[in-house]
Each structure stands twice: as C-alpha cells, then as structure tokens.
Design a protein around this nucleic acid. Structure first.
Lengths: 339, 339
DNA sequence: TTCCACATCCGAAGCGCTTCGGATACCTGC
DNA sequence: GCAGGTATCCGAAGCGCTTCGGATGTGGAA
C-alpha cells in the first residue's frame, strides 16, 4: 500500500493526499478526515526512505562511538543513550550509532556529513582542543556537545560542573582532617578529567597542600582498575587516608581493595565517588553507603535530545549552553581522618 | 556532491559509476579504480535515503522496546543491544529502537511492517503463546526470536537453556542438603520465567520435595525488590536455607537482606544467581563470590546480529534455532545446609 | 570475410514521497 | 454582471540512487 494507490482509491490526487496527511492548510477539513480514516483503515504508512529522500531530512540523529570495540559500549555510554532515546524516539527520530576508528576520526566525520545519514550529531567526550567543533561548524552540520572544550566558535553544549563537584568533594575531605587524598580519575586528555583534577587541585591549594603526583591516577573507570590502583596506594609507606574517584564502578573495586587489607571504608579510609546514577547501582544502598557527587547521565542525555529537536526546528545553537550543578550527597564512606 | 556530478566529472554515465561503486562485474577494472579514487578524493558518499528507496532495503534492523518508559531501557536490554551492535554496525546496518505501548502492541507491529522502516526485527521476551510470531510470519516480515515460544510456525530463534540451568542449580543445592529452597524469579508470563521455574520444580521433584508456593516469587529483577523479597522470606517461621535468583542485580539486594539480619551468605543462607554477564558487575569478585548460572546477554545479541545478516542474505529462517548451554559456576555463596 | 560471444558502457524508467506553480469553482462587493 | 479573493485541488518535476534492456566495439572461430 503506497500513497499512489491510496490516492486512487479515494479518487484524489497524490498531492492532496500528501498535503492532507501532513496537515497543510489548503485541503478541506472533510477531505482530510476522509484521507486520514482511509489511511488508518487500509494500514497505510508512508515509506520512510522516500520521505527522507524527498524532504532531505534524515529523521535521525547520530551518536559517534569511539570504536575501540571493547569499550564501544560501556555502561556510561549506554546510560547516556537511554536518556537520549526518551525524547527522540517519541518524535520518530532514529538514533543511529556510528562507530568511528580513532586513527581516521576526522575522515569518518567527513563521511558522515556527506552521506547525509543524520540531521545532527551528538559529540561526547570532548578534549580541551577538540578539532571536531571547527570541522562540523565549517561544514554546517548541526551538533551538540556533551561536555565542554576551549573554543571560540559558538556552538551548543551541555555539561555538568565537574570542577565544582570535585572541588567541593575535596574540601569535604579536607574539612574532615584528611591531608593525603588520592584521585582515581578517568583517562587523561578529556575535558571532564581535566576539570575534575582542577577542582581537586584548587581545593588542596586552598588548604596549602601540594598535590602528590603519586596519588593521582588516570585510567579506565572499571572495577578492576579501581582495585589495582587502590591496592597500590594502600601499599605505600604513606598511604592516602581518603580517595576520590570518578565512577561508582571504580569505587566498587576500591572498596574491595580496602576490605581485603582488613581496613574499613569510612573509618580507616574515606572515599567520595562520582555517581552517574545507574539505575542498577545505587551507592546509597551499599554498605557503607557512599558519599557521592551525583549527576545523572540519563537526564543529561534526555535533555540533549530535547535541545537537539529545538535546534532542528530553528533554534540558534549559539544560544544553547547549560552547566548543571552537581550536588554532594553525604554517605557513610567519609569520616574523620584517622590520627 | 552527488553521483550525477561525480559521473559528469569523470565523463562516465551514472550507471557505470553506480555499478563500479557497487562492485558489479560488467565494468572494467581500470574504470572501477578510477571511479573509486575520484570518489575518495572528492569525498563522495552515496545518499543513504536514496539508496534505500531505490533498493527497497532499509539497511536497518528494528528492536522493539516494551515502552513502559521506566523500564524502557533496563540494563538487560542495553546489554543485549550492545551485543547486537557489534556485528550489525560493521555492515552499516542501523539499529532502530522502536518503543511500543503495551496496549496496542499488535497495531504497532502492523505499522512497523507497512512503513518498511526496517528489514527485519528482533523479538525479545516472548510469552509461551506469543501472537507476534504468526502475525509477522503472515506479513512476511523477517524476524528472529530471542527466547522461545510454543509455536508450530517455523521461525528463527536463539535461546539459552534456562530450564537446564535452573535444574542443575537446584540440584546443586539439594545435594548440599538444602530442602527449603526459594526461587526469586522474573515477571510471570514470559517463557524464560516459566522455563526457570520448571527446571527448579523438576529438580525438587527428583528429590521428592513438594514446592512451597510461599517460596516462589515473581517480580522485577532489581536490587530493591530483591531486598524486599528476601527480607520477607527470612522473616518466615521456617525461612529458606537457600535462594535461587534470576539476576545478579537482584542477588545484590538479597545479599544485603541476608547481611542486615546478621546472617552470612554461603554459611547460613546459600544463593545461586543467574548471571547475564554485565561487564561492570562481576559476581566472581563479590564477597563472597557468587555461585552462578552464567550466560552472556551480549554474546547472544551478537550472535543474533550475525544470524540476522545471514537471513537477509537468504538463509532459511526455519533452519535457524540455537539452544545455548548454561554452565554452573561454583562460588562461595553456596555451602552445606545448616543443621 | 562473416558471425557470434564477450567485455564494457549507457539511456531511461522507476523507487515513493514532497512541493511549486498553476487550475477550477465559488463567493464577495461594487 | 464582473473583477478580484478565497478555498480546494491537481500535474508534473524533482530528491539521488539502482537496474533493465540494450548499444557498441573487440577478437577469435568458422
């Protein structure tokens, strides 16, 4: 069943049927109703590809995946996608997952732009000097950045206040009397990693404490690396009395390392973790409950979906920029520094 | 840059360019190379919508999401999608996520079929008498079922041996001397839930034990419900000495309930959990390590992606049917029944 | 030399939709 | 009774690609 035969059955032109279905004003109300009813009854649905070809709109937004296939689908990414879906999917927008090899990243972007496969892109994990922003801007491909970068080109972005969050978390530990505070951060190079380290350093500086490079690590945010790193720190002559970490998954490994040395989390060692709010990992119900800096990846994804739709309806990307505050939620994993 | 101008620049017809790019045999090797080089140099990429319209192939496979928006994207689903992605994405197949309201589910399927938005569907969470199978078969929409159903229509499917897994797990507990064994299963109505309960009942029957309805629960597979259910069981006059559960997330809640009553997992209460293998939740590293029946959702998704591609290349769906064995992996969460 | 198979290329029709630029009929007000 | 406005409808030309059914030229067999 295509539009042509539908039109024939109704004794109308294809033009009229098309305009009726798309809600144009130059078709009589009675006709529109007749067309709509027939469409429902006969199970007519426009062919998506034809519609896209004719309108030039792809009806899809793209999400670039760093295609290092192992980490291709890590829980953080998936959680973000889940959020993105909530709005887009209702507007019949597809989400196209586009894997990109890191070596020829820029070429991949060129390809995506010229295939017109998507109407807009979501960029994740920006670096401080991200070269994708000028490229996409120059080529006129709409996009929204999840995170921030140093760039003078106006563009749409949404980020959480990582710097403020880690500053506050570090201060909290300092106020409890901790002086050797370690930071288990994400991979180096990304803006969020940089911001978190900056917040941490700033707070230390306020208290006149020089950061110890041995207590700062950059790695993947997994349980396993969390264990390994914490185990290393706890075997130092002067082990840290508190640990700051960038992910709850990592916190699980860290707390295992603490326990396996016969130490108690929240008494012998304190910990604050950044919580991206996974529905299946609730740090509040862990034992002991975790002190966290909390920001929902899913909520960010959802909002980005909304903003994307606004952009495609004409909103100026330069007017879009949101910095979300990150609350510090106290749990039992932080306590006074041991004497 | 479209194919027409590319052809003009090369002094060739559009036909030849198309056939060169698509690897047809009736174009000279030298010409093909010339075309390919020009395409790369000029950054030409075929327009996806046009290609789809012309070929009638959507280049996408659909995944129906039960659109109860809260659980729309639960970790099990996401993990499955991650697997599905690994193969499809390399073949330039999009994954289109299609949310469906439960009340008018069948209508939604009709819509998807007639819009020709996808080349094939993946069906999840089948019930025993799943009406989607006859519908899709009748309408000629290719699909593959993740799970099983009672149906005499030949169709493609892939499932894990839930029944065997739970039979073996229950036997293991029985051999350790447990007699009051509880089952925290998934929502009623689904085939996998049914199979798991059947395996459990069969093993009990082998040992001449009548199942106690009070010790069988059906619910969502979350941490929170796990806690609530286990807490209820442990407050019975005759509490179970062992618990079987359908998910690691649930096991986390259950083990919290056990601990919060001052009991020890693996000594006072034993537990076996079904592990869908989330990369961020490793039951082997939990304390104590969990005894699990293990099957990777991601691996299943990945294989289904492969099979889907084979089907679209002509393989008979009736010839596709895989039942995966599920190993029982011993950990420290199961021990002899207390006297 | 003639015929035919083979390799290589091309014209034009179509995939199913949208939309520009009218066409038609009817209704105002003068 | 007529010009101009308004409400409805339609023909036909695309959108960018694939593919059917030839057309052309070459070399070897007869």
């Amino acid at each position: 069943m295509n539009m042509k035969t539908l039109a024939e059955m109704l004794g109308l032109s294809q033009t009229t049927v098309s305009r009726a279905l798309n809600g144009h004003s130059d078709v009589a109300e009675a006709t529109r109703r007749r067309v709509e009813e027939a469409a429902v009854k006969l199970g007519y649905r426009p062919n998506a590809s034809a519609q896209r070809l004719a309108t030039g709109r792809a009806g899809a937004i793209g999400l670039i995946l760093p295609a290092n296939s192992d980490r291709l689908m890590n829980p953080h990414f998936l959680e973000f996608i889940a959020g993105l879906g909530t709005h887009l999917i209702r507007k019949e927008f597809d989400i196209v997952l586009i894997p990109v090899e890191l070596q020829d990243e820029m070429r991949a972007y060129e390809r995506i732009i010229s295939s017109r496969q998507v109407d807009a892109l979501v960029l994740s994990m920006p670096t401080l000097a991200d070269e994708r922003i000028p490229l996409l801007t120059r080529r006129g491909m709409p996009f929204i950045l999840h995170g921030r970068t140093r760039s003078n080109v106006p563009h749409a972005w949404l980020d959480v206040d990582n710097e403020g969050a880690f500053r506050r978390a570090t201060r909290h530990l300092l106020q409890l009397g901790h002086e050797r505070i370690a930071l288990a951060n994400g991979p180096a190079g990304y803006t969020y990693t940089h911001h978190r380290e900056k917040g941490y350093r700033d707070a230390l500086a306020e208290y006149g404490i020089a950061p110890d490079p041995a207590l700062i690590s950059n790695s993947d945010l997994t349980d396993m690396t969390g264990y390994a790193i914490a185990d290393g720190w706890l075997s130092l002559k002067a082990p840290p009395t508190a640990i700051l970490t960038s992910a709850v998954t990592m916190a699980m490994g860290i707390s295992r390392a603490i326990r396996s040395r016969g130490l108690t989390l929240g008494r012998d060692v304190s910990m604050v973790a950044h919580d991206d709010v996974f529905p299946y990992l609730n740090p509040q119900t862990m034992i002991p409950s975790l002190t966290t800096t909390q920001s929902s990846l899913r909520a960010a994804g959802s909002r980005i979906g909304e903003l994307l739709l606004e952009m495609l309806e004409g909103r100026d990307p330069g007017s879009i920029g949101e910095l979300w505050p990150v609350p510090l939620i106290l749990g039992d994993s932080t306590g006074p520094a041991p004497q």
